[in-house]
């Protein structure tokens, strides 16, 4: 029993660590749709190779759909396999939908009196915000408290693209498009703006990788940093689906956090001209 529990915990730990090293994505089969009540199918996974389900299915906790009118709903026909999660979304309204998940919370690390490293939440366990003040000693040596946010999303549009879903939540790292994410063409530069807790921030590291890395020797990533307006201008490397990854960190956090960090990923489709 003890062994089984230890094994389970270490597996959880492994998964958590690996999830950071790997890439998690939600990939729509189509992003631009015409007609009434189009149904879009999605694949979602955590993988080594972009858009190839070679590692683990994406856990669907927190996964939801924001419709053009702002209403939030569940995905349909959800199935989680070994390497891949699949689901459908029915586009019964005209406009742009967001499909994704977001989470945020505090984490802390410090040195115990006997010189050992301590973490909260403990590795592999979920953070309960109510426990923070009880479990994290405020006067601990080398205490570092971080407010972390993660967001993963993709977009699909039925008919004319709309902007209703791009109202910022002002929580964590968010992407607010200047160029609509379902109106991207290979020959046209696109501008995306990043906000941290609702404010445009300079220095967000943005990486874009075009699909098909399995069939080439280099990732050929586009590496960009946001300017003072929080914007990056992207010159595409041709049509295809792109994996977008952005990260940001600074020390302008709200107490008790001393720093804040945001991670963002998205899948965008760029069409040929």
């Amino acid at each position: 029993m003890f062994n089984a529990r230890t094994l389970f915990l270490s597996l959880l730990t492994l998964t958590a660590v690996e999830a950071q090293a790997h890439r998690a994505w939600i990939q729509p089969a189509l992003t631009v749709l015409s007609g009434e009540k189009a149904v879009v199918s999605f694949d979602a996974a955590v993988s080594n190779t972009i858009f190839i389900a070679d590692h683990a299915a994406l856990r669907s906790n927190g996964l939801n759909v924001t419709a053009p009118d702002g209403s939030v709903r569940e995905v349909e026909n959800l199935h989680t396999g070994k390497n891949r999660t699949v689901f459908d979304v029915t586009l019964d309204q005209q406009g742009t939908y967001r499909i994704g998940m977001a989470s945020s919370g505090l984490s802390a690390r410090w040195e115990t009196e006997d010189g050992k490293r301590a973490f909260w939440p403990p590795r592999g366990e979920k953070a309960d915000p109510a426990e923070f003040s009880k479990k994290v000693p405020a006067d601990a040596k080398n205490l570092s408290v971080s407010y972390n946010s993660r967001r993963m999303e993709t977009f699909v549009t039925a008919g004319v693209p709309t902007d209703g879903i791009f109202t910022p939540s002002n929580k964590g790292l968010e992407m607010i498009p200047v160029t609509h994410p379902n109106d991207l063409f290979a020959g046209e530069a696109a501008t995306l703006r990043f906000l941290m807790d609702g404010e445009a921030v300079e220095g967000v590291e943005v990486t874009l990788i075009r699909e098909g890395t399995r069939y080439r020797n280099s990732e050929d990533a586009i590496e960009l940093h946001t300017n003072k307006q929080g914007e990056v201008v992207i010159n595409w490397q041709g049509a295809g689906r792109y994996f977008v990854e952005a990260s940001y960190r600074d020390n302008k956090a709200q107490a008790p956090a001393t720093q804040r960090s945001g991670g963002y990923t998205a899948v965008l489709e760029v069409l040929p001209d």
Binding site: V32, S34, G35, G159, V160
Partner: peptide, 21 residues
């Protein structure tokens, strides 16, 4: 059921240049 509209978006440029509205 107007199912033929499903493929209108395959005329990609037309779709964004007014077709979709």
């Amino acid at each position: 059921n107007d199912a033929g509209k499903k493929w209108l978006k395959d005329m990609r440029q037309w779709w964004r240049r007014g077709g979709r509205s």
